[in-house]
Design a protein around this nucleic acid. Structure first.
Length: 115
DNA sequence: CGTCTGACGCACG
DNA sequence: GCGTGCGCCAGAC
């Protein structure tokens, strides 16, 4: 397998998995990275999501946060409140840029998804 | 081609 | 429990 192919799959998988996140649920970069086969490439997930903002297909990047449930990527949405507003519109409560009950609404692709 | 950066995560103190 | 440092992979310059 060519490395280029692998790279392409990496980004593609990130987009696909992120889109599969159900409403009202959130996931973490590490969980997605682990699911796609690169547990230590959590940073790449965030980066891929950043590029996903330019993608034509809508990717619920706002449902993806770091392992602490902190909205670290809110700044990339242009306004700092965009990410919070999107999450709140999905019944996700945000307090001080942190998701409440994060552990409760956490969506792990490794467990919820399976293939 | 060498170096830095980045929406992270973990180990260590 | 919190702050700091390092490693990770891939891309941009």
């Amino acid at each position: 397998m060519n490395r280029k192919q692998k790279n392409n799959n990496f980004f593609e998988k990130v987009y696909q998995v992120t889109r599969k996140i159900p409403c009202g649920r959130v996931s973490s970069y590490g969980a997605i990275a682990r699911y796609i086969g690169s547990p230590q490439a959590a940073r790449m997930v965030g980066w891929a999501l950043n590029k996903s903002l330019s993608q034509k297909e809508f990717v619920p990047a706002h449902r993806v946060v770091n392992r602490k449930g902190l909205l670290t990527g809110k700044k990339h949405f242009g306004a700092s409140n965009i990410m919070r507003e999107l999450l709140e519109s999905e019944n996700v409560i945000i307090e001080n840029d942190q998701i409440l009950n994060f552990k409760n609404i956490f969506w792990d692709p490794c467990k919820e998804l399976s293939f």
